[in-house]
């Protein structure tokens, strides 16, 4: 290829043009194409993220649907357990309930008092509390007491007897003096 003889003025112009071209390329890539590319990448990332959310949500919704079917028994049982607990403060309804319960088995003068109230250690039962009660039966026949305690344990699944003391009443050997420490599990309201 024949290189034309260039004058110094032409070479100067040529160099200036080359420099201008390089500068133009720099401006083009840095200030035009660069932001465009960046914006496109950001948008693609957001689309990807959003798409993942949508895909995940579909799975989440089907999971919730499956869970709903699986949890039928648990929900019914949970509702039945909750139904055992009347509204209001436990101190208001538990002592009368015990009095009535034992009176039905001819054990009179039953009294119940609240000893303490604690929370569960298990995270699953964070909305439930343990109420520790002392139930006193000053006059109880042993056979009637046994039957009554068995009935109580069956009728109140959320009640657990932790301590039982039976003493002979010295004045009347037919009767016993009974103290029951019981714990009830009650939902916080």
């Amino acid at each position: 290829m024949k290189i034309p003889n260039l004058s110094s003025d032409q070479i100067k112009k040529l160099v200036l043009s080359a420099m201008g071209f390089v500068f133009l390329l720099y401006v083009y890539f840095t200030f035009f194409l660069g932001p465009l590319q960046k914006s496109r990448d950001t948008t693609l990332a957001r689309i990807d993220e959003m798409q993942k959310k949508i895909d995940g949500s579909k799975g989440e919704m089907s999971k919730a649907g499956n869970l709903e079917r699986q949890a039928k028994d648990a929900t019914a049982r949970f509702a039945s357990l909750k139904a055992l607990i009347p509204d209001g403060a436990p101190i208001a309804w538990f002592p009368p309930r015990m009095k009535t319960f034992f009176a039905a088995d001819q054990i009179d003068k039953a009294s119940a008092r609240l000893e303490s109230n604690t929370s569960f250690k298990q995270a699953e039962l964070s909305s439930w509390s343990k109420y520790n009660w002392i139930i006193e039966l000053p006059q109880a026949d042993f056979v009637a007491l046994g039957k009554s305690i068995a009935d109580l344990e069956n009728a109140e699944p959320l009640l657990s007897i932790t301590k039982l003391s039976v003493h002979v009443v010295t004045t009347d050997s037919q009767f016993q003096q009974v103290g029951i420490a019981a714990t009830t599990v009650i939902e916080k309201r």
């Binding site: 989440e60 949890a71 929900t75 039962l125 959320l158």
Partner: peptide, 19 residues
């Protein structure tokens, strides 16, 4: 759905521990 799933999971776990 997420809220319901959490609620159901809590119910299942609480029922299991109560049982």
């Amino acid at each position: 759905a997420q809220k319901r799933a959490t609620e159901l999971t809590n119910i299942i776990n609480a029922t299991r521990v109560l049982d």
